[in-house]
Every structure is written in C-alpha cells, then in structure tokens.
Amino acid sequence: MSHEAHAPAAGHLKLQYQPALPLRNGKLFLWLFLSTEIMFFAGLIGMYIVLRFGATVWPVPHAVHLSEPTGAFNTFVLICSSVTIVLALEAAKKNKSDAAKFWLILTLALGSVFLGVKALEYRAKFAHKIVPTMPGSPIFNIYEKADRYYGSAVKYRAEEILDGVAAEEKALAAKYDAMAAEVADKKLPQAEADERLKAIADERAKETASREEGEDGWKKKKEVVNPLLSEAKTVNQPDILYGLAARIMPMAGARDKRHFLGLNDTYHWLKMPIVVPGGNMWAATYFTLTGFHAIHVIVGLIAFGLMMPMKFTAANCGIIENVGLYWHFVDLVWIFLFPILYLF
C-alpha cells in the first residue's frame, strides 16, 4: 500500500480514512448535534426543577388555565407523528416513493396540529394576561399576592376603563355635535335643516343606545367597574383586597376539577390584573420550555416541507432517517415536558 500511495498525485488526491464508527459522517453529526440539544434542554429542565422546587408556591394547572386533556391530546398527536415518520422511512426503504410521501405529509399535518393546539393554548394565556412582566414596569400582568400594589393596579385599570368610556362618550358627543354644527353652518332652509337635525339626533340616540347596551356596553362597564373601583380605593385593607382578587380571578385553592369563572372570564373586556401566587415564574418557565420546544417543531416542519419535492428511494432514504431521528428527539423532549408541566 505504502509505496504506491506516495506516488506524486496530480490535482486533488482522494484520501483514505479509517473511521472509528460504522456511521456516515452525516449521521454521526446528527447524533453529536442531538447530544448538544439534549444538554440544552437538560439546562432548561434543570432550571424548571430548581425554580419550581425553590418556589414557595406554585399555581395548580387550573389557576393558570392549563388543561391536562389538551396536553394529553397533543402528546398523542406527537407520538402518532413519530410513528408516521417511521412508516415513511419503511416505505422509502421499499422504494415506495408515493407511500413515503403520504406518510411524510401525514407527519407534517400532525406536527401542524400540535402547533395549532399550542397556539390555542397560548392564546388563552395571553387573553388572561398570564404572561411575564417586563422588569421595571409599574403595572404587572400577574400579581404574586393581593397586596397594596395589586390594589392600586386594580384601581389604575378601573380608572383606565372608566376613562375609556368617558372618552368614547365624549367622542360620540363631539361627533354628532360637529355634524349638527355643520348643518347649521350651511344655512339651509329651516325645514330641511330641521329634518336633517332630527335625523342626526335619531341616529345619535340609536348609536348611544347601542353603545350603552350589550355585554361590553358603557352601562355594563360602569356597572361592573364602579364597585371594583370603590373597593380598590381602600387599598390598605388586605381583607378587602383579597376578596376583590378572588372575585376578579378566583384561584382554585386545591386541585378542584371545576373551572372557576372569574370576572375576567365573564367580561372579556375587563382585563383586570390578576393574582396568581407563583404565577409569574410559572408563566416564565411554561413559555420558555414550550416555546423552545415549539421552535424545534417548526424547524422539523420546515425540514419536512423542504423534503416534499424529493423522490424517495432506498438509496436516499438516509435523509428521512436523519430528519426522523431529529423528529423523535423533538417528540422525546415533549414527552418529558408534558408530565412536568401539566401533571405534577
């Protein structure tokens, strides 16, 4: 071997190697890459464990509108997608390109379902402002306890709503006053002017009525908010504040299967600050863990999408195998996340 090997080579020489593992480089790369990913999620999950067990209180799932069945459904969806990607690989190995593509599309669809459900879950959290609060901001999204700060935040929000109503009333009045003034300016014949003014007044009455009525009408808003405001003004009395908090966002003290309907749930426009002991850290960990997982899901879906135009054969099924490996990893991470986030 040796002497021929040293013969002068013209141009690029194809070198021989002695690999230590019976794997293609791409596969080895993927395994190594996945081990770094494991460490990444290990860091995040470790963080979760430390924070959760270091916390004095931790909200129960219902307090943060987390639904176990939804999570379980999503787990099921993801497991199915792991099965379909294996089926895709099997089909490709048998040179059945169309079947492989079918399973691939199914995987893509299941992944998208997972993301869709996740998006719905996120929306519910956003709607209830169960999201972290920027440092330095005077008003929080979530309060740890019904203290003075909470009271003043309720007061602030109540005033904001009432001010909003007042501003709308004023704007409405201004709008019709302006219309009336315009008619007056035009120096129309009296009869025509009267008629027009009457039309304007009718419309005004109609619109005012429509704005006053209804679930988020002015009347309702004042009716709901005014008592809250007067209660919140007594911010130095913890008992009152606590009652207030319990009405705005009642928390399941124990593991209660009933879903409490708080004021925020009843009146979607209310958007009062809420009290969830341990809630800020809960939201922080929940969104970070599921968010990084969702990013990995999206990357996987993009990979599936890019593979769509390919024709799969036993020769090139390696790509399905590699992307599939990654997909199993993403699945595995969720299988860890589901119990620690939803069940314990």
Binding site: M39, A42, G43
Partner: peptide
Amino acid sequence: AFALPVLTAALFMQVLDRMVGTGFFI
C-alpha cells in the same frame, strides 16, 4: 458540545429576563 448548550440556555434565559420579564434570576 456538552457544556456550552447549558450556557446558551442560561444566556437565553437572561435575555428573556431582560426583554420579556420572565424573572428567572430576579
């Protein structure tokens, strides 16, 4: 490969603390 991802996770967490307000370290 094994230590750096943990720092990356920590860096992201501090970024989130500062930009979103997660409060992991506060």
